[in-house]
Amino acid sequence: MEDQSSEQTYGLITPSFHLLLKEFPLNQPESREIIDEILHSFRDVPGGLMVILNEIQSKIGYISQPIQEYISLILNIPVSTITGVVSFYSFFTTKPRGDHTIKFCMGTACYVGGTPQLMRKAEQILDIQTGDTTPDNHITMEVCRCVGSCSQAPVVVVDEQLYGRVRPSKVPPLIRDIMKTYEDS
């Protein structure tokens, strides 16, 4: 018992805990460390579950079933509660995402301004459906809610960079720019 540092920290010796630690991404020391640190800093914050999930989503990129079970054991909250929260908010994803995300704004101004055409164009180039990730895990394509830049409609957000007044002909260069970063390396 003494030699397991995780057990010392949390005082948990359930068999499921051991099995859980063998699952991806908890079996990766780096990811484990990040998750542990987040849990440590926010476990005592009132209503901290949302904060923890937000942090994990932004640092790990997704909140898969093993991660949810891990949080549940450490915070002593039922997994069902955590899954309930994760599935409620559209920002939380349970599947890993691509390295880059292209988001198409579906706010009113962008919708009227032609977002559907842009999406069709991108779907055609990437050969995936909206919401999916390319097989090489490079690009995830998704629809997002209004990003609040309606005066520049239609808007496309690549990672955190915003592109306004995008025409269908601008979509191929945008995607090419992302792909270029892979060719160089």
Binding site: G47, L49, M50, Y89, R145
Partner: peptide
């Protein structure tokens, strides 16, 4: 975390409390 209904005050409170 991307839920429109959280702008409603009682839903917002639930969200701050860390719930759905």
């Amino acid at each position: 975390a991307g839920a429109f209904v959280c702008g409603e005050e009682t839903a917002l409170i639930a969200s701050v409390e860390g719930k759905r």
